[in-house]
Design a protein around this nucleic acid. Structure first.
Lengths: 340, 340
DNA sequence: TTGAAAGCGTTACCAG
DNA sequence: CTGGTAACGCTTTCAA
């Protein structure tokens, strides 16, 4: 079946292609009336013909001519990651409601893959980009700004980057909140395991941890263990056993994957929380409610993060200036942080 | 910064736009040499100029002219769903390695949203579509075939649909395998909770369950409880309590979300598995290894499913005929199905 | 309120 | 091997 073009519609409706274009691009006002400089009857006829013929706009042609694409790109670290999968869905829904399509690409914590992803989406003339940058991504993102493509940084900040929108969790607050919970419940030897990824979310959560320890004059006892995605599986176990030897009472874990690893180790060694080790974990998971003891954790406002980032990007596409928005974390109390 | 076009490159390299186009589209052979009808030195110069100027192909123009887009669409039910998030990543990677970009859109188990998503992606001239159809989606998918757009059905079959590729889990086998595990461990009163979504994966898993019961002459004892996404939260609890009253010994749960609900109910009522109720669950989750008793579950070969669907789609784009591929499920044994 | 015509940047065709 | 040129389908002036 040959594809129907704007010409076919124009011929069939006895009008010019211009009129068809006007009608197809007309927005509707609150009463559902088309707002365009076309006679209402003509417009109605065009609409009827278009739908009868099964006309579909050819985006490539429209985009080529207009320079716009009504498409935004979302580049998380890894779309299969629990956090981003949830957020992606919110972004998709919000974007759709504002009339935008969404192109996804993962960057895999690798600046060169990020660059490839960025190249791919800019080739598609996307109108704007939401990106969760990886360490070392500042340079390639800066290059985008030369092309005047609006960019919103999601979840992770890059301090040196200006002229981009930022929608972030207040990570410092999250670290402070998590740590304070443990301290207030009477734990003093509270340590933290973190990833050495060089991205703001982790360093801020670490600072929040230090801040809370300092406020209780426990700065001397503060200790942050660093590991990496790749090595976590083997290193977390060593870290935990070491902590227990040294009489550590509680741990703050700033992300889901670390939390899951720690729980795995506890289970393996038949250790229980909070008795052997109190915990405050991060992000949402069924695991937290189904674990033997329910787990205290910090949740991020996924939906708000996703929707706000789209709103900001779209307003930037429409010419408004970028902003920086910090959203508040929430603490969900479970048994893992109860007093000894 | 003005965007560099093929003309700028041609002028700077003192060649025609045709040559630049040839070079930019040339594939490389195994030695890394360009395969195109252009003098090697000229090609090298063009490449050098293009990279120096920062040339990026304008996809809209290329797509408009060629009718192709080097983009495939993936339309799962819900991108944030654990199963699809994982598979999406595999699809993305595989597609990228074959030179395709990926456009995602969720259908939300709603035929009209599926249609909207399909419209959106076809407007983008996608070369092919991978879709996990929802109930009632056959009609809108059939319409795609009129446009000769290659389609691969992933995860869910629609029997009446021909001329499309199919990459599915052998769901009957999965149901049979799960049920047999319980029966072989000595459980006789084995029931199942399933979703009434009207899609093949569930009905096949149900048939497999019935098959296994029948083979052990327990067909009379077979019972399948149906619920829906929306009502599961309240209904699962009633179903479980009812089962225990009636002396049911074991349950087969054909998907993750049901499994999680059941575990929640068990925990709430301080029931333990397999003592009070043996279980075989579905899909992968940290929950299965971290639950008090480890959970026996059926896993799907996510990576193979994703990669195979892309391979099949691309081969269909290249003109090959569609196939139907069934992949085997795997049983991971845990404590929840151990003998009483 | 309507229509004619000029491109947008590529690729594909044809000629040399 | 190389180059000129006509589309592709749309949006956007501009003029009527």
């Amino acid at each position: 079946m040959k594809r129907i073009t704007i010409r076919d519609v124009a011929r069939e409706a006895n009008v010019s292609v211009t009129l068809v274009s006007f009608v197809m691009n007309a927005k509707r006002d609150s009463d559902g009336n088309l707002i365009c400089p076309v006679n209402a009857d003509t417009a109605k006829r065009v609409l009827e013909v278009a739908s009868r013929l099964g006309y579909k706009r050819n985006f490539a042609a429209a985009s080529l001519r207009s320079g716009r694409s009504n498409t935004i790109a979302v580049i998380p670290n890894d779309i299969s990651n629990k956090f981003f999968a949830g957020i992606s869905r919110c972004i998709e829904d919000k974007a759709k409601s504002l009339g935008y399509n969404v192109l996804f690409a993962s960057s895999d914590e690798d600046p060169s893959r990020l660059e490839a992803a960025l190249d791919a989406v800019t080739s598609h003339n996307v109108d704007g980009i939401i990106v969760a940058p990886c360490a070392g991504g500042d340079e390639v993102i800066t290059r985008l700004l030369d092309y005047k493509i609006p960019v919103v940084l999601l979840d992770r900040d890059i301090d040196t980057l200006n002229g981009v929108g930022k929608v972030l969790l207040d990570d410092w607050e999250a670290g402070y909140l998590a740590t304070s919970e443990l301290l207030e419940k009477g734990y003093k030897k509270v340590e933290m395991i973190s990833y050495s990824l060089g991205i703001s979310s982790f360093s801020e959560r670490e600072s929040g941890y230090i801040g809370a320890m300092t406020d209780r004059s426990l700065k001397g006892k503060a200790k942050i263990h660093h590991t990496s995605y790749a090595k976590a599986v083997t290193e977390v176990e060593k870290i935990i056993l070491g902590c227990l030897d040294r009489g550590v009472e509680a741990l703050f874990l700033p992300t889901y994957s670390l939390s899951a690893q720690v729980l795995t180790v506890l289970k393996k060694h038949k250790l229980s929380t909070p008795k052997d080790l109190a915990l405050v974990c991060f992000d949402e998971s069924d695991v937290y409610s189904l674990y033997d003891t329910t787990i205290t954790h910090i949740v991020q406002p996924l939906k708000v993060l996703g929707e706000t980032s789209v709103e900001m990007l779209v307003s930037m596409i429409e010419g408004k200036a970028p902003e920086k928005i910090l959203l508040s974390p929430e603490l969900i109390r479970g048994g893992s942080s109860e007093s000894k």
